[in-house]
Simulated assay, not measured.
Amino acid sequence: MKYVVTAALAMLASQASADSIKLVSELRKNGEVVKQFVGSAPDGKTQTFGQMTPVAYRAANFPIGGGVESVTRYIETGFRMVVEPRATGTGNVKYRLTVKRQDLAVTPEKIMGVEIDRPHTSGDEFTQAVIEKSGVAHEFPFRYIEAEGEDKYVLKVTAWAVPE
């Protein structure tokens, strides 16, 4: 009996394991693909796709002598997805996503004689866990309720368990 139980556990463990999880994702803005990521992550290991890039803006300009001294600040913009996938052994892939999207618009202003760029950021961030059949796509809307005229972002992720 001991050998039967050991053999059954070994069989279940071999079905549950995968060398890696292949991931295909696309970020759509108003229905159009704006970013695509294709890659793989080791089963159970965290992988990052996309990147946030620091963008400079002029926080202040100070007249000094005959010139101008500028103070520059940075805000990260772009898209980043951190995913931790795991094969379940039942033909499913479980994955946890942490996603961030941020845009920057700058409006030049003059306040008390000092010129600055007023930064306006927009974006979304969420964390979600999903269990989906291997190879089946899942869509993650960034907002469930959108204001009229607001851009609609949707992230679509498909994950496949790649056997050892």
Results as ranks from 00 to 15, higher is better:
V24C: 11
S25R: 13
E26D: 11
E26R: 10
R28Y: 10
K29V: 06
N30C: 09
G31A: 11
K35P: 04
Q36G: 01
F37H: 04
G39I: 05
S40T: 04
S40F: 06
S40W: 02
A41E: 00
P42C: 06
D43I: 11
G44H: 03
G44S: 07
K45W: 04
K45V: 13
T46L: 14
T48E: 07
T48K: 14
T48Q: 12
G50Y: 00
M52K: 12
M52E: 06
P54T: 02
V55H: 00
Y57F: 11
R58W: 05
A60S: 15
A60E: 11
A60T: 08
N61H: 11
P63L: 04
P63G: 00
I64C: 08
I64L: 12
G65L: 05
G66T: 15
G66V: 11
E69L: 10
E69F: 14
S70F: 10
T72K: 05
T72Q: 10
G78F: 00
F79R: 02
F79I: 00
E84L: 11
P85A: 05
T88H: 03
T88L: 08
T88M: 06
T88P: 03
G89C: 06
G89H: 04
T90P: 00
T90D: 13
G91V: 14
N92K: 08
N92W: 00
K94Y: 13
K94I: 09
R96S: 15
L97A: 05
L97P: 09
T98P: 00
V99Y: 02
V99W: 01
K100E: 10
Q102F: 00
Q102T: 02
D103K: 02
A105R: 13
V106A: 06
V106F: 06
T107Y: 12
E109W: 03
E109I: 15
K110Q: 07
M112P: 01
G113N: 12
E115W: 03
I116R: 09
R118G: 01
H120K: 08
T121G: 07
G123E: 05
D124Y: 13
E125F: 03
E125V: 03
T127P: 02
Q128L: 12
I131R: 14
K133W: 05
K133N: 12
V136T: 12
A137D: 04
H138M: 12
E139D: 15
F142R: 00
R143D: 10
